[in-house]
């Protein structure tokens, strides 16, 4: 059988390169959608919040998650505050069961933003933690893809400037909004470059503050599509594919999805991915098992829902949103084993 010969890394890269494979990969991209559930942390002893700051612990926890859940990738980091912290926001590192978040944005308004030298910034902060963990993981698990998850441009901007002030600026003062987005996108590109150099096989982007529901179609096109594509094309320049997760309901920006240059589009649970695929056959779809089911459902129910995604021809199977840290391993395994045909 060919099945046993293809490595999970090749399978994921093949799908992202639109090549035929034996079956869909089942992955969990990390970042805002990490699988660092309490059960894995307790059994492995590699715990958060310590693993946010320590590259060895970060790699060990990512490895334990992969081994215990059966997800066919390693995903780092376990939060979406790495970039904002570097840019000056105050971060609450959270607890074992509670993810880090922005305690206080660095700037109250767009006018207050201090533009710093990006190369200098890259030498400090947790980008080093992530790239060093990535290097370890890519050496230890050569058959598995390491996915480095980054916070998208608008979400990063809305994490360093008070989000309400930033959203208003998008409408009131496009020129200064663009200047901020160019700045954070440049930082993200260099973060991606370092991750790829460290051994990342795939760059994943989550941009939860840049949804059609929040921005509407016009601003989604002007700001979200534009900067996501600049970032994506830069990563393509590093010969690395990009997965993009879009939060929430995509109805009002549906027709803009084909304009996104990411190699796979991941969506939330309320989006009918089979229909999206039917409407836009060129899109590689990823998702979208309800994290509500994963937390509250039974293994049997999860298995049935996962099988439906597989039968629908969804290209990459993954959770639809951030996993609750109290999700059980049994439920996640029901998902991964169903895809793996066990």
């Amino acid at each position: 059988m060919m099945t046993s010969k293809i490595t999970p890394k090749k399978r994921l890269l093949d799908v992202l390169n639109k090549k035929a494979t034996d079956r869909a990969p089942v992955i969990c991209m990390g970042g805002m959608m990490n699988a660092s559930i309490v059960e894995v942390m307790n059994s492995s002893g590699f715990t958060l919040p310590a693993a946010h700051d320590n590259p060895d612990l970060m790699a060990s926890l990512a490895g334990a998650i992969q081994e215990q859940t059966g997800f066919e990738n390693l995903g780092v980091p376990f939060c979406m505050t790495v970039e904002a912290e570097l840019l000056g926001s105050r971060i609450d590192k959270g607890t074992l069961a509670c993810e880090p978040k922005i305690r206080q944005e660095a700037f109250g308004s767009v006018r207050d933003v201090i533009f710093r030298d990006i190369d200098e910034m890259l030498e400090s902060g947790r980008i080093q933690t992530v790239t060093s963990a990535t290097a370890k993981l890519s050496q230890t698990y050569q058959q598995l893809p390491v996915v480095v998850s980054m916070t998208g441009p608008i979400s990063t901007a809305a994490s360093i400037i008070n989000p309400m002030a930033f959203y208003k600026e998008l409408r009131k003062n496009p020129a200064s909004a663009h200047r901020i987005l160019e700045y954070v996108t440049e930082l993200l590109i260099r973060f991606a470059a370092r991750s790829v150099r460290a051994g990342a096989s795939v760059i994943a982007i989550g941009d939860p503050s840049a949804t059609g529901e929040i921005l509407g179609p016009l601003m989604f096109r002007e700001y979200a599509v534009r900067y996501l594509n600049i970032l994506t094309e830069a990563v393509h320049g590093f010969r690395t594919p990009v997965i993009l997760h879009i939060c929430g309901n995509i109805n009002n920006v549906r027709t803009l999805i084909p304009d996104l240059k990411a190699d796979a589009i991941s969506t939330d649970a309320m989006v009918n991915l089979a229909k999206l695929k039917e409407d836009f056959p060129g899109i590689t779809t990823m998702g979208n098992l309800s994290t509500y089911s994963l937390e509250w459902g039974t293994p049997h129910k999860i298995s049935v829902q996962t099988q439906k995604l597989v039968n629908d021809g969804i290209d990459i199977i993954s959770p639809a949103c951030g996993l609750s840290t109290s999700t059980t391993l049994a439920n996640i395994r029901a998902m991964t084993r169903t895809v793996q045909g066990e």
Partner: peptide
């Protein structure tokens, strides 16, 4: 009606 979105509502509120 999805003619206004969050940026517009915030500016109306201001």
């Amino acid at each position: 009606d999805e003619e206004y979105f969050i940026p517009e509502i915030l500016l109306c509120s201001d």
